[in-house]
Design a protein around this nucleic acid. Structure first.
Length: 267
DNA sequence: ATGGTAGCAAAGCTA
């Protein structure tokens, strides 16, 4: 048995955030870091800094301006047939997924689900329909999974009442609407996924991973939501030994509005 | 009831 530590973080621009990513890697020492919203094309991804820190394996899927995902690792990670490992679940070319194979036999999938716009109505707001379609395509994919898998990333949905600061006030706010929660439940059932956040921090305990930039004092108002998740195949979930949400990162200089999730495994 | 902030990249889009 060897220890394996995997982190996931919506970084909201890896270039603007390079100092705090470096601090996080030095302090937390994950073996693998999955990033979402890197906001950079592959050519100018700041890979040299990560390489110096020992993260010599880097699988990038970036694009200009928005979105973008990456997996950086200090242990080997492998891509197989490239198209197989970069799903386009929105069918519009946006860079929102990258997946790799680990030597221990686990498949690691890093996803950035679209936010879905402001209006929770697919007729009035096409982005909301695209978000639901994305989850639907993920569900079809999940039904066919044949390997032990860890699915991590920014799902942009907070499913439980204790995943948001006010269930009542967010019922009609995109990220916590019943239609999104139902779609996410369908995805969860499609592979019998284990929600590692709630395995380690059971309801009704408060658990958030995101706080808006628009609050005057994010910590004082604490109007958070749990938008980021780590879901494991049942056999992978059994290997998990610890899990945490790094809330202090929200208070670091020039923070992301999301904080990192970290899970430790014995594989 | 509204607007509040942030990054990219060069005005508005996405979040």
């Amino acid at each position: 048995m060897t220890a394996l530590k995997i982190a996931s973080w919506n970084i909201n621009s890896v270039r603007a955030r390079i100092d705090i990513v470096e601090r996080f890697l030095r302090e937390e020492q994950p073996d693998i870091l999955c990033l979402q919203e890197t906001k950079v094309v592959n050519d100018i991804f700041p890979g040299g800094i990560f390489h110096q820190l020992g993260y010599t394996h880097q699988i990038l899927h970036g694009q200009r301006m928005h979105h973008g995902v990456a997996i950086i690792s200090r242990i080997p990670i492998r891509e197989d047939a490239e198209s197989q490992w970069r799903f386009d679940w929105q069918d519009n070319g946006e860079a929102r997924h990258v997946g790799v194979q680990l030597d221990c036999g686990i498949r690691l999938e890093n996803v950035y689900v679209p936010a879905g716009g402001d209006i929770p109505d697919a007729e009035l707001n096409p982005k909301f329909g695209q978000k639901l379609a994305f989850i639907e395509r993920m569900t079809r994919w999940a039904e066919q999974i044949s390997q032990p898998t860890l699915l991590v990333g920014d799902f942009n949905i907070a499913p439980l009442e204790c995943d948001v600061w006010s269930h009542k006030q967010l019922l009609n706010v995109v990220s916590h609407t019943p239609i999104e929660v139902e779609a996410l439940a369908g995805l969860k059932a499609a592979h019998d996924w284990v929600d590692l956040g709630r395995k380690f921090v059971p309801p009704p305990e408060r658990l958030y991973t995101w706080w808006s930039y628009r609050a005057q004092d994010w910590a004082a108002s604490d109007r958070g939501r749990r938008l980021d998740h780590m879901w494991a195949s049942p056999e992978v979930a059994k290997l998990a030994t610890a899990h945490k949400v790094h809330e202090p990162c929200r208070g670091w200089l020039k923070p992301s509005d999301h904080v990192p999730l970290v899970t430790e495994f014995e594989v």
